[in-house]
């Protein structure tokens, strides 16, 4: 069982590289979001037999909300990155229009809750999984209120949120953790707390 790594609390102001890293992640994932919109729309007929199952696709939309805080470890990193990624996908042309930005903000906030609960000192697997799940719950809550208000609670709303939370925990939570681990040897994280423990060459 991997333990939560403790890192010094993110102090003071954001460095330029923190801002840029979050922003660039947001741009990259904005494109992914935009592409994922098509997957989401395209899979509709396939999942028509059980629409709540669509929640399972949700995790991909939440990766920035977990990945960015895991890398830069600053208060608000998830919020900034997720909202910005949503904005980029809106810039590229999203079917959800401006609403996707509100939703991005909400998703980012959901993720922040998990990191805030660890007082921005815990960035282990458990925190990442919780952040992914919470971000997904926030997102799908917005969905059921705004897009699916008339659906039945037990036949649609609850399973939809549950599938999404699962997807968020696995794809966004564990996935981000795995991404960070894979990035360590590439040296791109050397300037971040996450990359500090790497062996010297």
């Amino acid at each position: 069982m991997p333990t939560d790594s403790t890192a010094p609390a993110a102090p003071g102001r954001w460095r330029t590289v923190d801002i840029l890293t979050c922003a660039v992640l947001a741009v990259a994932f904005g494109v992914v979001f935009w592409a994922w919109n098509f997957v989401w729309a395209g899979l509709d007929p396939v999942l028509a037999f059980l629409p709540p199952l669509k929640g399972i696709l949700y995790g991909v939309w939440l990766i920035p909300a977990v990945l960015a805080p895991l890398i830069v470890r600053r208060v608000g990193a998830g919020l900034l990155t997720e909202a910005l990624a949503a904005t980029v996908s809106a810039l590229l042309g999203s079917v959800w229009g401006v609403l996707v930005i509100y939703q991005g903000l909400l998703q980012g906030l959901g993720g922040e809750i998990a990191f805030a609960a660890g007082r921005y000192r815990r960035f282990g697997t458990a925190t990442a999984v919780a952040a992914g799940a919470l971000a997904c719950v926030a997102a799908t809550l917005f969905d059921v209120v705004v897009w699916y208000p008339d659906t039945a609670l037990w036949a649609f709303k609850i399973p939809y949120i549950a599938f999404a939370a699962l997807s968020g925990a696995i794809v966004a939570g564990l996935g981000s953790k795995a991404l960070v681990a894979a990035m360590l040897p590439t040296g791109v994280l050397d300037r971040f707390p996450a990359g500090r423990e790497r062996a010297r060459i």
Partner: peptide, 16 residues
């Protein structure tokens, strides 16, 4: 993955 890593690397250089 290479694209993502490249993007983060660019972020560092752009920040500099």
């Amino acid at each position: 993955f290479a694209l993502l890593v490249g993007a983060i690397r660019r972020a560092g250089r752009l920040a500099a």
